[in-house]
């Protein structure tokens, strides 16, 4: 079976459609726009819906409506646009609606620029909107994973009734690679909580408002139990030459690709370097961090941001060892040599 040579941004849409996604609501923003382009191209070809919303705010609220009506739906944005979506994501989390949201990170703060950065880490991973909530955050580092995550994200979202974020960066979104797509189209289940506009679902209520303080605390406790369950069930990470590593890099997205190359070079120089790559940022691979750190002489978090990932690594290992942070920002990316030189 022939692979397809495709951009990450397009692959994530194809993966999602194969997963049964039928509705896309979005607003153009560089470097995420190819996601909207692909959705606008493919959706009408099988009767799906693409709407270019009047704003990021509207787009996420369209997702709220469509998710509440039980279809698999998605949106995508980047930095400034994602900030605008934060309101809606809080509502989605409160109403426990499954959906998929892609953030193709660009450089900030403010308008920043359109080059790759990973500065939205805290905003996305810690929940961008108001209130006590979390979302599942997937962090693909290839076009193949963009497709795979688009394909699996809805299953996670529905299993836990939670929005799933695909947090990627301008490089992973813009890069083309060969991708192997699944050959089956997933069937979407019927849910007892969704409104379908029929007799069976007439009792369904989609809402995030809970007027009683006691009941809202209960709701929050229930949400937190769900997050604990997710921490037990959904952790994904990859260890690259990690088993015997003295030098442990932690990186995700494009940073992890650069680090992989650096690890290969270091191994050729007989330095036992390895990479721990979180594939889920929430839930964070805490145990994997503890295990890797226990053998490590040096731990370095490499990110296109100011230590946001490094902080999570420190938290994961309870600050038992020093975690060095190496970050570039503003659209700058480290060279492989730069990473190698951190160890030599």
């Amino acid at each position: 079976m022939q692979k397809e040579f495709i951009k990450g941004n397009e692959a994530v849409v194809k993966g999602a459609i194969l997963a049964g996604c039928t509705h896309y609501f979005g607003y153009p923003i560089t470097p995420a726009s190819e996601i909207a382009h692909a959705a606008s191209f493919y959706m009408p070809l099988f009767g799906g819906t693409f709407i270019q919303a009047e704003s990021e705010v509207s787009a996420i609220n369209m997702v709220y409506g469509a998710a509440g009506a039980g279809v698999r739906c998605m949106t995508a944005s980047s930095g400034p646009g994602f900030s605008l979506k934060a309101e809606g994501i809080s509502y989605l989390a409160g109403a426990e609606l499954p959906c998929v949201i892609v953030d193709v990170m660009r450089a900030g703060p403010g308008l920043g620029n359109i080059f790759p950065e990973q500065g939205d880490y805290n905003q996305v991973v810690k929940g961008a909107g108001h209130g006590n909530y979390k979302v599942v955050v997937l962090a693909p580092n290839s076009a193949q994973e963009m497709a795979d995550h688009g394909y699996m994200a809805f299953d996670i979202a529905e299993k836990h009734r939670i929005p799933v974020m695909i947090l990627t960066d301008a490089y992973i979104g813009q890069m083309m690679e060969p991708v192997d797509f699944p050959t089956e189209v997933k069937k979407v289940k019927r849910f007892d909580w969704a409104v379908y506009g029929d007799k069976e679902s007439r009792q369904a209520l989609v809402t995030s408002i809970v007027m009683s303080a006691e009941l809202l605390e209960e709701h929050n406790i229930k949400l937190n139990k769900k997050y604990e369950k997710i921490e037990k069930e959904e952790v994904k990470y990859e260890g690259y030459k990690l088993d015997d590593a003295d030098v442990v890099f932690v990186a995700y997205g494009v940073s992890s690709r650069i680090v992989m190359s650096a690890v290969d070079i270091l191994r050729n120089k007989n330095i036992k370097a390895g990479l721990l790559r979180p594939i889920t940022l929430f839930p964070f691979p805490k145990q994997a961090c503890i295990d890797a750190a226990s053998k490590a002489k040096k731990i370095i978090a490499v990110e296109l941001s100011n230590g946001q990932l490094a902080d999570d690594v420190r938290l994961a290992i309870n600050c038992k060892k020093e975690v060095q942070h190496y970050g570039r920002m503003g659209g700058m990316t480290p060279t492989v040599e730069e990473i190698v030189s951190l160890v030599e």
Binding site: G65, G70, Y196
Partner: peptide, 13 residues
């Protein structure tokens, strides 16, 4: 906006 999402998802409603 939410109504748009609902109606597009359930055109028969």
């Amino acid at each position: 906006a939410a109504a748009t999402g609902v109606k597009r998802a359930r055109p028969g409603s």
